[in-house]
């Protein structure tokens, strides 16, 4: 926040300077200009340039507040956070646009964005070191004036980067309720509906053509075992922490296993679940399949085969674990 504080300080200085230079234009005019700019945009976000910003955002006497997003959306900067915040910001702005049908409300808050491309010079002057940032320039007079009209930043955390979070935080700041207008993801809904429909149809087909009495239990067993395998191999960890699917070395070669025991890659879960499954399969085969073989030589061979498979799989699992946990003293065949 120190950076931001510093930036705000600079902004204040600049604004004072500017006031001396340009004098001050009327508040209503300023608002009008900003709103014209805002109306050009689908989401009601005024695209600011240094001129607009200097004249209509950093003026001392205004009866409206401006929420400005400082960002760098051009792909050159590779700023992923900017995109997330921009999306949320636009959703909040849209929501506000919908919500503020009355004239009074519309005049209260204006949303604006200042991009690195438009105002690089300005960014440098304000010594802004990081984007994205959200700065609020509150109204200093009129019915919605703030007690302390100095500009303030809004911390962009995980919560405030989501449309709902940002809207609620802004709402708290302004003391009103702001609702974000999150676009309905129709394609996703359609996909879900299609999946459900396909699933239902599949269930119907199975119900109609497959003799459930002979299969039912096996299906349940397979589902249960798959679920348990996933759960015990760190699937939920992946869901929550969203690690990369595979790792990379410096030279760009893929790495399957994360080197520490508190981290894992996406593919690890699958490999580990598969090793568990093979081990379990060997056990089941030894108990269920082997005794049914009539020919004793064949039976001996199959027994050996499954035993060797079990040992190899388990030792593979063991060696992976040793790799992830240096100092683990036990090993089985594989290093």
């Amino acid at each position: 926040m120190r950076i931001l504080g510093h930036a705000l300080h600079r902004i204040l200085q600049l604004s004072l300077l500017l006031l001396l230079l340009v004098g001050h234009s009327s508040s209503a005019q300023s608002l009008k200009q900003l709103q014209t700019q805002a109306n050009k945009d689908r989401d009601g976000v005024a695209r600011l340039d240094p001129d607009l910003f200097m004249k209509h955002v950093i003026t001392e006497h205004k009866d409206y507040s401006v929420v400005v997003q400082l960002t760098a959306l051009s792909p050159v900067y590779k700023c992923d956070a900017c995109k997330t915040v921009d999306k949320a910001f636009r959703a909040v702005s849209r929501g506000w646009k919908k919500q503020s049908s009355s004239k009074d409300a519309a005049q209260r808050i204006v949303f604006g964005t200042l991009d690195m491309d438009d105002g690089e010079e300005l960014f440098r002057q304000m010594s802004i070191e990081g984007v994205p940032q959200l700065v609020i320039f509150p109204a200093s007079k009129g019915p919605h004036a703030f007690e302390n009209p100095s500009p303030r930043g809004l911390t962009l955390g995980a919560k405030t980067s989501s449309p709902e979070g940002m809207a609620s935080r802004l709402g708290e700041l302004f003391g009103i309720e702001i609702k974000a207008d999150v676009p309905v993801n129709y394609s996703k809904h359609l996909m879900n509906i299609a999946t459900v429909a396909a699933g239902l149809y599949a269930v119907f087909l199975v119900y109609k053509y497959v003799d459930l009495r002979s299969l039912g239990r096996n299906i349940w067993a397979i589902c249960t075992i798959l679920f348990v395998l996933l759960m015990t191999s760190g699937f939920m960890w992946n869901r929550i922490n969203e690690p990369p699917y595979v790792g990379q070395t410096r030279s760009g070669d893929p790495v399957l296993f994360a080197p520490t025991n508190s981290q894992q890659y996406g593919i690890e879960t699958q490999i580990v679940a598969a090793t568990y499954a093979v081990c379990a399969l060997c056990i089941v085969a030894l108990v269920r399949h082997v005794p049914r073989i009539q020919n004793s030589d064949q039976r001996t061979f199959v027994t050996f085969m499954f035993t060797v498979a079990l040992i190899l799989t388990f030792s593979y699992l063991n060696s992976v674990f040793r790799m992830k946990m240096p100092g683990y003293p036990f090993k089985l065949l594989l290093p």
Binding site: I225, G234, W237, V272, Y276, A280, F321
Partner: peptide, 29 residues
């Protein structure tokens, strides 16, 4: 949440005996 090494650390080979046990349970049910 639990990463897989935790399971292996805490349960070792039991963790892959579990699916087999589930299978046998389904046989008898």
């Amino acid at each position: 949440p639990t990463a897989w090494p935790n399971f292996f650390f805490d349960l070792n080979m039991l963790i892959w005996l579990l699916p087999a046990g589930i299978y046998f349970s389904f046989r008898e049910l």
